[in-house]
């Protein structure tokens, strides 16, 4: 199995452990990833309100680079926000001739052109649909029996494009957690927004979102995420939210490939576990050797 790889900006900084663990798990499962050379920012959620065309063009630049690797290539994207932006641009290139012409007019400025002939895939899509329980089980060497996992999907890998899971009642993470022997927490918050950038720009509202999710995760040993924004909101702000509510809401938060990597016996350095902001001592002793 071969994919082009678009890490996105967060995975080079605050979400480096997501990048490390994605590469480590894919390599261990025999999947080859080729990073798109000279990729640039997808525009995140900042470009679109300032300029819709800029947002599409920034993502299309990366699609154009990916297309040079050949028509029909698949791009693996771990960040949900990057995934959605690249998908929107790809959708416009594929299905809207007028937009395609406008985007390509803009791309002339950087000597590129794009047709929309690649496929944009979220990491969770590839892990659950292409690899799945069957292909990953043989690599599992440890049992996490007795652990309870709260699977947190977030928003943009599920909505608005419905590609690989139910956008309101997702289950794609469950078999991946179950092959480790761990149990799934039954909860309603797996698709509830983490507050995204509101945590920075409108903290009263943003932190309220984080609080709701952390409260609901009580009873789980850890939360598993598939998006850098979800991760930093849930792990980076949990001490602040605990302070605000006067309730201890601390909980271990891991990226899905970190959790899978641990079960596959991959060493913690390769999974970037020293970079996480919320791994509780009890969890460390029990799981990370």
């Amino acid at each position: 199995m071969k994919y082009l790889y678009y890490p996105g900006c967060s995975l080079t900084a605050t979400a480096r452990e997501y990048d490390l663990s994605t590469r480590a798990v894919m390599a261990a499962a025999g999947v080859s990833l080729t990073e798109i050379d000279d990729w640039t920012c997808c525009g995140a959620s900042a470009a679109a309100p300032l300029s819709h065309l800029l947002s599409l063009s920034l993502s299309a630049r990366n699609l154009a680079l990916a297309e040079q690797a050949g028509s029909g290539s698949q791009i693996l994207v771990p960040c949900s926000a990057c995934y959605l932006n690249l998908k929107k641009a790809n959708d416009a290139l594929q299905n809207d001739a007028e937009r395609r012409a406008t985007i390509n007019e803009a791309l002339k400025a950087v000597d590129l052109s794009a047709n929309g002939n690649v496929r944009v895939r979220h990491l969770l899509d590839v892990l659950s649909m292409d690899l799945g329980k069957k292909r990953l089980s043989p690599f599992i060497t440890r049992s996490f029996k007795g652990l309870t996992v709260a699977p947190y999907y977030g928003c943009q890998c599920l909505r608005p494009y419905v590609e690989f899971d139910d956008p309101e009642r997702p289950v794609s993470m469950e078999p991946l957690v179950e092959i480790t022997g761990a149990e799934i927490l039954s909860w309603e918050m797996g698709t509830r927004c983490c507050g995204a950038s509101l945590v920075s720009t409108q903290p009263e509202t943003g932190l309220e979102r984080v609080c709701t999710i952390l409260k609901a995760a009580k009873g789980a040993d850890l939360i598993v995420t598939v998006c850098p924004m979800c991760q930093i909101n849930l792990d980076g702000w949990q001490s602040k939210v605990s302070q605000m509510t006067g309730e201890d809401l601390s909980i271990t938060v891991l990226y899905l490939p970190q959790f899978l990597g641990l079960a596959m016996g991959i060493d913690d350095k390769s999974l970037g576990l020293d970079l996480n902001l919320a791994i509780l001592d009890g969890f460390k002793e029990k799981i990370i050797q």
Partner: peptide, 28 residues
């Protein structure tokens, strides 16, 4: 400005309207 782009409204709108993108456009 308090829209966090979760797309739940867009998903559920019975008329299929681009609600999240409309919030985004109002920010613009």
């Amino acid at each position: 400005i308090l829209c966090s782009d979760c797309y739940t409204c867009t998903l559920r709108c019975p008329r299929g309207l681009p609600l999240t993108e409309s919030m985004e456009a109002l920010k613009g």
